[in-house]
Design a protein around this nucleic acid. Structure first.
Lengths: 124, 124
DNA sequence: TTGACATATTCCCATATGGGTATATTGTTT
DNA sequence: AAACAATATACCCATATGGGAATATGTCAA
C-alpha cells in the first residue's frame, strides 16, 4: 500500500502549504474562487483542486451565489489539530524549564564580571 | 513537480498517523527503538524509517546508549503547529457563538411544552 | 439560443511515499 | 575473532500526489 490519501483527514489536508494559505485567506470572510486565484497567484484549476480537498475533509464550507461559489474556512475543523498539538504543551514547557535551569547553572558557574556583562546583553 | 517532501517540515511529518503515535509514545520519556516496535506493533524497519523522518524535521531527539539508540519527542518542534492552528481560534469561537445564538433563537420560537421536553432530553 | 463568465473535472506525467523483505552497520559479549 | 543483538538502509512495488494544459459544466446576459 501507499500513503494515506490526502482526503482522509485534516492533518493530511493541512500538510500542503498552499492549502494552509487558502485556509488563512478564507478564515475571515467567504470569497469566490476567482479572488482566491488572484490573491494567491496560482492557476485556477490548482485552486479548485485544493478547495476540493479542503471541502472533502470539512475544512471549508461552500455556498453558491449565482455563477460563483463562495468558500469560507470552517475553523471548527481545525480545532482537533490544535488540541492534538496542545497535548504536548506540558512537555515543551518542561523542556523550557530545563533549558532555563541549565542556563542559570551555567551563569552561576561563570565569573561575576562575565555574568553582569551577560545580564546587560539581555537587557537590551 | 510532485508533492512537497515529507522531510520538509513538521506539518508533513505529522500528517502520518503512525508518526503521531510515535510522537505521543515518546513524549514522556526516551525509549529504545525496540520498545517502540513492541508498543506500536509495526515492523522494525518501518519504525526506523518513521523515526528518521521525525528526526530530520527535528520532531524527535536521539541519543546513543551502548548498542541501542534512545529516542524522545522534541515537543518544542510541535509548538509552531499548535500556534498555527491557534490562529483560527477566534474564528471557531465566533462560529460557536453563532450556533449558540441560532439554537437559542430556535428554542424561543418553539412552544414552551416542546421546550421543556427538549431540556429534559439534554439533562440525561 | 448564443455567448461570455466562473468553476470544476479530466488526462498525463514526474515524483514522493509507505510497506515488505533482505541486508548492511555498529556495538557487545564470549 | 566470532556470534549475536539492536538499528538502519537498500531495493522493489503499488499508489497518491500536485502541476500543467485542455476541456467540461453550469449560470447569467443579450
Amino acid at each position: 500500500m501507499a500513503r494515506a490519501s490526502t482526503t482522509s483527514d485534516a492533518f493530511n489536508a493541512v500538510a500542503e502549504p498552499r492549502r494552509r494559505e487558502i485556509l488563512s485567506y478564507l478564515a475571515g470572510a467567504e470569497r469566490p474562487v476567482g479572488e482566491i486565484v488572484a490573491a494567491l497567484g496560482l492557476p485556477q484549476p490548482s485552486i479548485s483542486k485544493h478547495l476540493r480537498v479542503l471541502h472533502d475533509v470539512g475544512l471549508v464550507r461552500m455556498r453558491c451565489q449565482g455563477r460563483q461559489k463562495l468558500y469560507r474556512t470552517n475553523a471548527a475543523a481545525i480545532r482537533p489539530l490544535h488540541e492534538w498539538a496542545g497535548t504536548f504543551e506540558r512537555y515543551w514547557q518542561h523542556q523550557l524549564d530545563r533549558v532555563k535551569e541549565l542556563a542559570e547553572a551555567t551563569v552561576r558557574r561563570s565569573s561575576p564580571d562575565l555574568n553582569s556583562a551577560q545580564m546587560k546583553d539581555k537587557e537590551k
